[in-house]
Design a protein around this nucleic acid. Structure first.
Length: 637
RNA sequence: GCUGUUGUAGCAUAAGGGUAUUGCACCUGACUUGUAAUCAGGAGAUUGUGGGUUCAAAUCCCUCCAACAGCUCCA
């Protein structure tokens, strides 16, 4: 008998050789139906694999990420099986599960696979799934494996990189694949499949290699889940900030101005300015000092900072002065300028922490294929600040930034956030600048600070920059998608390079620690997420146009004007739709433009000094005086 | 940057060798309107750019630019 420890800590005894499926069956039939794979001592296994010794076992279902992973990986095999029967001679390479579904890279030979073939492939997959084939695991020798894949240079290459004795094949139905596993109990649990798109991909991601056809798909254990997923995609498409940005006239791009250089239109500027002012005020309350620095700087600045050496070639190239031939660079970041501000006179420890803030516009040469709406651009404005402090102050500064970021994001309607903490790679200590003590201190400060404020975090070793550990905020939007926004980074490098110092109470010079931080990340990226999060229906305080006065006929245009003038001093902004149109029409247009309040005015309202209020998306909320509307409005801010 | 797809009026679309369709938006006129699109008329396009093939190119070929989907990259 062996002891099996379950996740709840309970220990059960089973015969040696028991499988995860046996364990599931011993618990409940429902669980057995839903189990996909199992984690055995930290490793994900097939459900029919024999467990020979005392182990910790976690049964994985569709609810677990690892369960989904197994499910999708098996789906990739199922797709391959379908492809094999539809396209004889097709060569398979790799077919992993991804965040949302799976793909398989194939060399289709003389066949051509396009999205028009999806239906056919999906049908075949479902047909094969209904056969409820099991996945048979088989250990093979390297020689056998190579013999099996004779003529498939991709698999041969993969096999040659593997160690003899560790190679396994999996077979379901007529399809056998080189695979580490694990797999689902049988294909029948795949109830719904949808191929998403085809794309070219190079063998091993190298453009010098052969181009393969990559087919992306998703699959689900229930048809209903597929339907829900497709709805989500549709909703995401509707909310696409590129589409809404154009429709709501927030921003534009111009081929003449250049790719990746967003142009903010009046309404987008109104929105963005509100956001910036809000954050600026919060920062001033928290002791930040706003500064303004130029958009270009001499190349030497970036030679000092080290950025030129690291990124110079991949940046916009220098701008030259006509006479002297001096070289200037468009600034790719604000920190070197802020280091100059810190260093322009001697600093006392009494001045620290010094928090220098700037909405600094920076320019980076992003690869053309990487540009995407507002989320990936070549010119953008960071809500940047650099905090210079003593090592002892690091944790308090972190707490302050965490508090600010959470405050700011929740004001925007983002309530669900987590953070990723990037730490050193313990196996590679030489990669990093700064003393071990400083790193230990900084990493501890980040971890403790996040624990103190109760922020959910994941820690990833080896993801830290060479100059310091960092924390990245992830927010979950209304559609459940995660976005990386703000960031906090500790930097030991720049203070060193700029030889920054402060005089301590011991009258000695000391090196300050620098923290880069940006709660939004960049205005562009943040606003792209915000647009999609709220589907263009911005929180009232941010809406570029908060109300539209809709006169019933042009006899009431003058009255409409007095409404606008009455509200303006209270910082309630809006427009008057004085076109010679029917109210129905004006309402529709205001609804489509997502204007939060419609104030309909006609004979009665004009006579009584009132407005008939309609709320966007909700409808009529009643008649009130202008004064009452003002209060009603302000209550909703 | 690489691979593929696409580029027709402000937006969305039709025409796949014979100088361009329709709807919305826009302008003009009529209507003076009560909670999601009033009616009629008008104007707007050297079909992304430059070149080539052809008697003739939105349409076929090439260059460049841009967008989209992947890949690669990201201070």
């Amino acid at each position: 008998m062996i002891n099996i420890t379950l996740p709840d800590g309970s220990v059960r005894q089973y015969e040696s050789g028991v499988s995860a499926m046996d364990i599931a069956l011993s618990i409940s039939e429902g669980l057995a139906r839903n189990v996909i794979s199992a984690k055995v001592d930290g490793e994900v296994w097939d459900t029919d694999r024999s467990i020979e010794k005392d182990s910790a076992v976690q049964l994985l279902t569709w609810r677990d990420d690892e369960g989904k992973n197994t499910f999708w990986h098996s789906s990739a095999h199922l797709m391959a099986e379908a492809l094999q029967s539809l396209y004889p001679g097709i060569k398979f390479t790799i077919g992993p599960a991804i965040e949302r579904g799976f793909y398989y890279d194939v060399d289709p030979g003389e066949h051509k696979i396009s999205s028009e073939d999806f239906k056919k492939i999906e049908d075949k997959m479902l047909e094969l799934a209904r056969q409820k084939n099991t996945f048979e695991r088989k250990e093979v020798s390297k020689a056998e494996a190579l013999a099996f894949y004779k003529g498939n240079e991709y698999k041969e290459e993969l096999i040659n990189d593997l160690e003899d004795g560790t190679i396994t094949f999996y077979t379901q139905g007529d399809f056998t694949d080189l695979c580490r596993g694990p797999h689902i109990p049988q294909t029948g649990i795949i109830k719904a499949v949808k191929l998403m798109n085809v794309a070219g991909a190079y063998w091993r991601g190298d453009e010098n290699n052969a181009q393969l056809t990559r087919i992306y798909g998703v699959s689900f254990p229930k048809q209903k889940e597929l339907t829900a997923y497709l709805h989500l995609l549709e909703e995401a498409k509707k909310r696409d900030h590129r589409k809404l940005g154009a429709e709501l006239e927030l921003f534009m791009f111009s081929e003449k101005v250049g790719a990746g250089l967003p142009i903010w239109l009046p309404k987008g500027t109104a929105l963005r300015t509100r956001l910036e002012d809000f954050l600026k005020n919060e920062q001033i309350k928290r002791g930040y000092k706003p500064v303004i620095t130029p958009h270009i700087a001499k190349k030497e600045l970036y030679v000092t900072s080290g950025h030129y050496e690291k990124y110079g070639e991949d940046s916009f190239q220098p701008i030259m002065t006509p006479r002297e031939g001096e070289e200037f660079l468009l600034k790719p970041m604000n920190c070197p300028h802020h280091c100059e501000i810190y260093g322009h006179r001697p600093r006392s420890y009494k001045e620290l922490p010094l928090r220098i803030a700037e909405f600094g516009t920076v320019y980076r040469y992003e690869q053309s294929g990487e540009l995407h709406g507002l989320s990936r651009v070549r010119g953008f404005t960071q809500d940047d600040a650099h905090l210079f402090c003593t090592p002892d102050q690091l944790k308090d500064e972190f707490l302050g930034v965490l508090d600010l970021t959470r405050h700011v994001l929740s004001k925007m309607g983002f309530e669900d956030f987590t953070a990723q903490i990037s730490l050193r790679d313990p196996n590679n200590p030489d990669k990093y600048i700064g003393s071990k003590e400083n790193w230990d201190n900084a990493e501890r400060a980040i971890i403790e600070a996040t624990e103190e404020v109760g922020l959910k975090t994941t820690q990833v070793e080896g993801e830290a920059a060479f100059y310091g550990p960092k924390l990245d905020f992830m927010v979950r939007d209304a559609l459940g998608r995660s976005w990386q926004l703000g960031t906090i980074q500790v930097d030991y490098n720049l203070p060193e390079r700029f030889e920054l110092e402060y005089i301590g109470s011991d009258n000695q010079g000391h090196r300050p620690v620098m923290i880069h931080r940006a709660p939004f990340g960049s205005m562009e990226r943040f606003i792209s997420v915000l647009i999609e999060h709220c589907a263009g229906k911005f929180p009232l305080w941010l809406a570029p146009e908060q109300f539209a006065v809709l006169p019933i006929s042009d006899r009431f245009n003058d009255y409409a004007k007095t409404i606008e003038e009455t509200l303006a001093p209270f910082d309630i902004r809006g427009i008057i739709d004085d076109r010679s149109e029917k109210v129905n029409r004006k309402i529709r247009d205001a609804e489509v433009r997502k204007i939060p309040f419609m104030l309909i005015v006609g004979e009665k309202e004009a006579a009584e000094g009132k407005v008939s209020v309609r709320k966007q998306g909700e409808g009529d909320v009643g008649v009130m005086t202008i004064e009452e509307f003002k209060d009603y409005f302000q209550k909703q801010l």
